[in-house]
């Protein structure tokens, strides 16, 4: 479905070049839920943005459904995948109602019957008609993230890219959003790539997980192996250990 060969991303130029991603190769099967974990600065979000075509400086061979997707993306390319951002407060236009936010992608792609599509997209993410004409500031964080998901799925893309979709939310709201994502994945047979710093979240939603550190791919393991600690690298082991909580010193 998605193949990346030797992805490198640099920011800046001259002496100040930052290698955000160095030589990452990945392949994601159709219908798979693929996770990328790492700490800040590991380059996990940059990989996701490069797949989406949001990083200009990427030098790579990227194929989506067998077709090369490097270089300038067409409208048809864009419909293959949609993105959900981390911060629900920043990803909605502050002066547009939910209705306008959902209408925009339909207008860009000239899709018919926007009224029904919008109504359906809202009901799919569990929002009622009463939310349709509200502005973002009239919605809670969880509701905003639902709108962002509805907006991503209204074009019916086969691939959904999620960048820390729940890390700005409370635990109880996170549970609702994660359940929603797995339900929508089943219903629409989506391929999902999820980036998160939270091992629990990634293991919950994904079958295969890539671990990244300092811009490099450390290893790719199955969720079961991650849970059982059946991993090869020390870094992954340290990450698992740390996310289990604090271990008191014995005195």
């Amino acid at each position: 479905m998605i193949d990346i060969a030797d992805l490198s991303v640099t920011f800046g130029s001259g002496n100040r070049v930052v290698h955000a991603v160095r030589g990452v190769s990945l392949s994601v099967e159709e219908g798979e839920s693929f996770g990328i974990v790492g700490e800040s600065g590991s380059g996990k979000s940059t990989v996701l943005k490069a797949i989406a075509g949001l990083v200009p400086n990427s030098n790579t061979h990227l194929t989506v459904q067998g077709r090369p997707a490097s270089g300038k993306r067409t409208k048809a390319d864009r419909r293959l995948m949609q993105f959900v951002f981390q911060d629900p407060y920043a990803s909605l236009h502050p002066r547009q109602t939910v209705d306008e936010a959902l209408r925009e992608p339909l207008a860009i792609h000239g899709l018919d019957d926007p009224e029904n599509r919008i109504a359906q997209a809202l009901s799919e993410v569990g929002l009622g008609v009463e939310h349709r004409f509200r502005y973002p500031h009239q919605l809670s964080g969880g509701q905003r993230q639902r709108v962002a998901i509805a907006r991503a799925l209204i074009l019916r893309p086969p691939v959904l890219l999620l960048d820390e979709p729940t890390s700005a939310l409370d635990v109880s709201v996170q549970a609702e959003i994660l359940n929603l994502i797995s339900r929508l994945k089943q219903a629409n047979r989506l391929t999902i790539i999820l980036v998160s710093h939270d091992l629990g979240v990634v293991a919950h939603l994904c079958n295969r997980i890539a671990i990244m550190q300092f811009g490099k791919l450390v290893e790719v393991v199955s969720a079961a192996d991650l849970r059982s600690g059946n991993v090869t690298s020390d870094y992954t082991r340290a990450l698992i250990e740390a996310s289990r909580g604090f271990v008191r010193a014995v005195d």
């Binding site: 949001l54 067409t74 409208k75 864009r78 990803s91 925009e104 860009i108 792609h109």
Partner: peptide, 25 residues
């Protein structure tokens, strides 16, 4: 900002982004 990236990812043209999303703000 993220909401402009979203419209870019939806495939909107530069003019559309400018007039419908940037100018109103």
């Amino acid at each position: 900002s993220d909401f402009i990236q979203v419209v870019v990812l939806q495939g909107a043209s530069t003019l559309r982004i400018l007039f419908r999303h940037v100018v109103p703000l």
